[in-house]
Design a protein around this nucleic acid. Structure first.
Lengths: 224, 224
DNA sequence: TAGTTTCGGAACTTTACAGTTTCGAAATTG
DNA sequence: CAATTTCGAAACTGTAAAGTTCCGAAACTA
């Protein structure tokens, strides 16, 4: 988040220099509830129409805001989108409250409840419509890391618990398995643009991931 | 390919109707070597700067062509890009001349020779920069199918041969394994934008795909 | 109350680029 | 040769959207 601040009453950090911009206290205060409304409208429109279809005028209209209000907070469309992505990804999976059924397959499936998947699909749609905006490396991480990393981390914890239970092989490459799950799901959602169905996910687990994790013998070492 | 034709000497298909446009033979002939130069410049710039960074003026300048020449062949930027993608994907993997070392792992690795991988990475860069242009379903297939499908098909044939040799389980889901290989590679190239190294590919094979394919017991049936 | 800053809304300016037209030169045909 | 169509190059047109400015009203401070 990098919003410009000018008439912020709370953030009065004392500056060492004398000629610094001291927090002015005169005038109407900035209404922070507008921020979220604008970010929400931004994500809404990104999900509907992608980056190119998202115009500042449309966002302003959707958020019932004036463009002056928007440009007082974000100096460009790129900055607004960057912050909107961060805002979208603020709700991570709750890593402290993961399913624990005693069975890895069940745990992995419980992770993708229909409710949370609707959210994720929306995020996918936003990402897919982002297009070449994701090109810029500075924004690429903001856009993707928030979604895939937290999911991969959750999967990894489930797998580690399964390993501790002796449910899967001690030789299994858990990080690789997690990457494959997220990669395959992302490819399906972002590139193929197919809906994320439970059957697809179950096939991926049963046909490839779980068999590989439960293999008994040591895998061949990689060639480097 | 859907280029407009007007002064084409060769394509004189006799028209049944009397008032049809008959192939005129007068005037300077169209120089077909310009087509390829323009398509090449298009792909060049797409790889460098993505769809948004590719302007018709830039392509014209790079190809040493006039814009009139371009619009005589393609009626819009979208058409030009579509044909350029098809042109880029004209060199498929040679499915009739696949490696056959007698070992699946070796075959799969032989498929990604460094030389062909440089080509593929370039294609990945083009696709990544295509962004929201890929949104349009009509072009999505042109863009992705040419790259991933032929590769997945080659992998599938190698796996089928390995299955015939008894090298991998009869229960293995070969199509799924191929999809996972292409998906993971595409995610790495398109989303993470990391280089496609042989070590990554070998890890994927050794850590996940080959173990899953060589599993002995029947996998759990998928939940639908 | 006077001064300042916010608000939504709308008009405005600027810029980038797709697509069109024009130009003189070169090919091609009859 | 004359007519026609191509070529590269450049000028031109139209439009969409980013970014700016102005407006009257509201909120806040001193």
């Amino acid at each position: 988040m990098s919003e410009m601040s000018r008439n912020e009453p709370g953030g009065g950090r004392e500056s060492g220099d004398a000629e610094e911009k001291k927090p002015q206290k005169v005038g109407r205060k900035r209404d922070h509830t507008r921020d979220e409304k604008i970010l929400e409208a931004t994500i809404d429109i990104l999900a509907e129409s992608g980056f190119d279809g998202m115009t500042m005028d449309r966002v302003a209209a959707r958020a019932q805001a004036g463009k002056a209000t928007m440009y007082r907070r974000w100096s460009s469309k790129a900055e607004l989108v960057r912050d909107a992505l961060a805002w979208m990804n603020r709700s991570h999976l709750d890593l402290d409250n993961l399913p624990d059924s005693g069975n890895l397959r069940e745990d992995l499936l419980l992770l993708i409840r229909p409710q949370s998947m609707a959210e994720e699909e929306r995020k996918f749609r936003v990402l897919a419509g982002l297009g070449s905006f994701l090109q810029h490396p500075e924004f690429s991480e903001t856009g993707t890391a928030g979604i895939f990393d937290s999911w991969a981390e959750a999967n990894l914890q489930l797998m580690k618990r399964a390993a501790a239970r002796g449910e899967i092989s001690e030789y299994a490459n858990l990080e690789l398995a997690c990457r494959v799950i997220t990669s395959s799901s992302a490819f399906r959602g972002l590139i193929e643009r197919k809906p994320f169905e439970k059957a697809f996910y179950a096939d991926l687990l049963d046909g490839l991931v779980l068999p590989a994790l439960t293999i008994r013998r040591e895998p061949r070492s990689s060639t480097r």
